[in-house]
Design a protein around this nucleic acid. Sequence first.
DNA 1: AATTTGACTTAGAATTATTCTAATTCATCT
DNA 2: AGATGAATTAGAATAATTCTAAGTCAAATT
Lengths: 145, 145
Amino acid sequence: MKRLGQEDKETLTTALDHSGQRATPQRETVFGVLLDQRDHPTADEVYARTKSRMPTISMATVYNCLETLVSSGLVKQVNIEREPTRYCPNLAPHAHFHCRETGRVYDVPVPAGTMEKLTDVLPGKYQADSVELVFRGHLAKGNSK
Amino acid sequence: MKRLGQEDKETLTTALDHSGQRATPQRETVFGVLLDQRDHPTADEVYARTKSRMPTISMATVYNCLETLVSSGLVKQVNIEREPTRYCPNLAPHAHFHCRETGRVYDVPVPAGTMEKLTDVLPGKYQADSVELVFRGHLAKGNSK
DNA sequence: AATTTGACTTAGAATTATTCTAATTCATCT
DNA sequence: AGATGAATTAGAATAATTCTAAGTCAAATT
Ligand SMILES: [Mn+2]
Ligand SMILES: [Mn+2]
Ligand SMILES: [Zn+2]
Ligand SMILES: [Zn+2]
């Protein structure tokens, strides 16, 4: 999918507008790249994919667009073990699985309320506004997809 | 506490030996620094604290010692949001709380079996050998300790 | 319609935590 | 004592990200 659908474009414009920023071709393209292939790409990978759709874009702009998308709440950063930051447009609460063998990162859906309930382990003085859950291991073979 | 107790020294020697490495004054001192102040220091902070006990130690050696301790299983790396790696000698399963205001990282004890039970959310193809749980937020005021 | 404004984009330099290199030092073994 | 190899060290190299400063562009104002 080379361009953003009407619904996604609407989502983008609304979110950007809400945070006082503009929708631009670069931002649309980067957002489209993230929506199209949800494999938690790094900035480098986003750059390569975006460049194939918009050859004139620069690395700096990719970083700027990603930051804009994050600040508008449309995209989350996923940091794993000091590896380069990855980007995830899945806004539902979810966990991540990091495969030691391939380095790939997968979304793990969790039952509603699971992430919130985790904060029950926190002593009262800790006020958590976000919860991050990461599993690490390997995929049962025959499941490299 | 400027030096390592007999029990900790025993633990260190055993673990290092088990992974084919030697106990050295530098490694003992770095380990002691981590045991004495369990605030998840960065390599820089470990370096400063170690240098005050052993002024001739170098940054390279601190990194080397930390890596040795991690590889021998006595210390865990704690990575949060692309900040410099922190080091934690707490071997019990536990979660972390990261304060947005101070940047400090706290250990959060969890009931036995809690971390393991989290893997129940994983579809069968995912074989997890580690689980990481990080909360982010702020401390209720009056609890800056 | 021309001008102004400020947001956005861009290339390249700077930053910085960490790793690497190559030269010593040091403990242990023969 | 001499040999061996692990450990330590200073400094260079690496690499993801951020910063800087100059250019571009679209919308708003005149
Ligand atoms: Mn990996
Ligand atoms: Mn922080
Ligand atoms: Zn995700
Ligand atoms: Zn800890």
